[in-house]
Simulated assay, not measured.
Amino acid sequence: MSRPHPHRRLRLVTGGALAALLVVAGCTSNTPETDSSSGGTDSKAVSANDDPGKKVVIGFSGPAADHGWLAAINSSALAEAKKYDDVELKAAEGTNDASLQISQIETFINDKVDAIVLLPTDGAALTDVATKAMEAGIPVINVDREFSSPFAARTTVLGDNYGMGVSAGTYACKVVKDKGLDDAVIAEIAGIDSLPLTQDRSKGFKDALKACGQNVDNRVAAEFTVESGEKAASNLLQAAPKIDVIWNHDDDQGVGVKAAFDNADRHEFAFIGGAGSANAMRWIKDGSMAATVIYPPTQAADGIRLARLIAQNKGLSDLVQVEVPKRIVLNAPVVTKDNVDDYMALGFES
C-alpha cells in the first residue's frame, strides 16, 4: 500500500492561503521536477556536495516491508547510501514492533553513529529514544511519521497527505471542466477512516473540489488492502449507477479497486489513484487509469542524503542558507499520460 501511516501530519492551510495553494497545485501538480528524485535513478545533484567528504556512519531503522510502499521506502534508502563512498550505512531489520525499534536506536547510540535516519513504527513511542540520541549529539532525521516533540529530530522529511487530496481534487476539477460536465458525480474510496492521514487526504480533496464548485457525492472507506479495496469499490459501484470521477487514496489498495471495476465492467469514469505504484504507472500508460498522485516512496532516501550533509556540516547547495532546513514537506504531483515516463522509475511494486 502507499503506505498510509497514523502519524503523518499535514501542513495547515487556511483562508486565502488555501485558494493560493489550489492555484499553485493546478499549475504545478502535473509538472515533473527537472531534478532527479532521490532513489529513482543513479543521478545525483550536480554540486560540490556530491564530492567525497568526511566518512560518516549512518544508522537506518524503518518499518517491516509488508507492502509495496514500505518496501520501496526501505530499498530506496539502502540504494541511496550505496551511491556515496563516504557513507557507511548500518541498517537495522525492519520492524513494526516499537520496543524492538527503540532497542535498535539504543544500539546506534551506543555505537556512536554520526547520524540516524528513522521512520518510526510509532512516532510518539519513539520520541524519547530519538531525543536521547539528539542529546548524545547524534542528529536524527525523522521520516514520514512525526515525533511528538520538536527536540527529537534535527530534520523531519514528510510526504503531504493534505496536498495529495488537493492535487487529486484539482485534477478532478480539470476533468469536469475539460469534459464540460454540468452535474458531475464524484466518488472517493478512502483508506482507514480513523487515521489522521486519511482524514487529511479527504479534507484536501473536499477543499479542492469546493474551490471549483464540486463535492464528493459518494464515499466509501477501505483498509489499505487489496481485498478491502475490491469490496469497498464493489459496494460503491452498486450504490452509484453513474460516476464521472473516482479518487482512490492508495494504489496498493487500488489493485482490488480496479478488479472491482473490471468485474463490473464499469470504466465510464476518470480513475485517479494515490501514492504512485508501478501498477498505477502501467495503467496510466495503457489508458485504464487517468492519473495518480505521488506520495513519495523516496522519503527515507532523502533522509539518507540529508543525514550525510548534516553529519558533514554541509547545507543544501540550492539554498542560500548554510544549514539543512528543519522541516521538509515533499510535493504531491499528479502523474498523467503526459508525464508518466518521468515518474516511472519511482513506481513501487504492490
Rank of each mutant, 00 (worst) to 15 (best):
R9P: 12
I58L: 00
A130E: 04
K179N: 10
P32M: 06
V293E: 09
K206Y: 11
L12A: 14
D200A: 12
F224Y: 15
K326E: 09
G62Q: 07
Q312V: 05
G59C: 06
P150S: 03
E33F: 07
V185Q: 09
A81V: 00
A291L: 09
G59Q: 05
K326C: 03
F224R: 07
Y171F: 07
E88T: 05
A184W: 11
Q299P: 05
Q199N: 10
A153Q: 02
F348I: 00
E223P: 11
L319G: 02
E227C: 11
G256H: 05
S167E: 05
A130D: 01
A48H: 10
S37L: 14
V245A: 08
G68P: 07
Q321P: 03
V23K: 15
Y84Q: 03
N215L: 15
T14D: 15
A77W: 01
G163I: 00
E188A: 10
P6K: 14
A136H: 03
D128M: 03
K177R: 11
E227F: 14
P6Y: 14
A211S: 15
F151P: 07
P63I: 15
D97K: 08
I73F: 15
L18Y: 10
V334L: 03
Q101W: 01
T156R: 03
A222G: 14
F205S: 12
I294S: 06
W69H: 12
L126H: 00
C173A: 02
A190D: 13
T298W: 15
D42I: 13
D262I: 05
I243T: 01
G274Y: 10
A77E: 02
D111S: 08
L100S: 14
W247Q: 04
T107W: 01
K44Q: 12
I58K: 01
E93S: 14
A124H: 02
R219S: 13
T292Y: 10
A136W: 05
G204C: 09
A259K: 14
H7Q: 15
E80C: 03
A25W: 12
A332P: 04
E268I: 11
K132N: 08
A136F: 07
K326R: 10
E223Q: 14
V46Q: 06
A92V: 01
R219E: 15
S99H: 07
L12F: 15
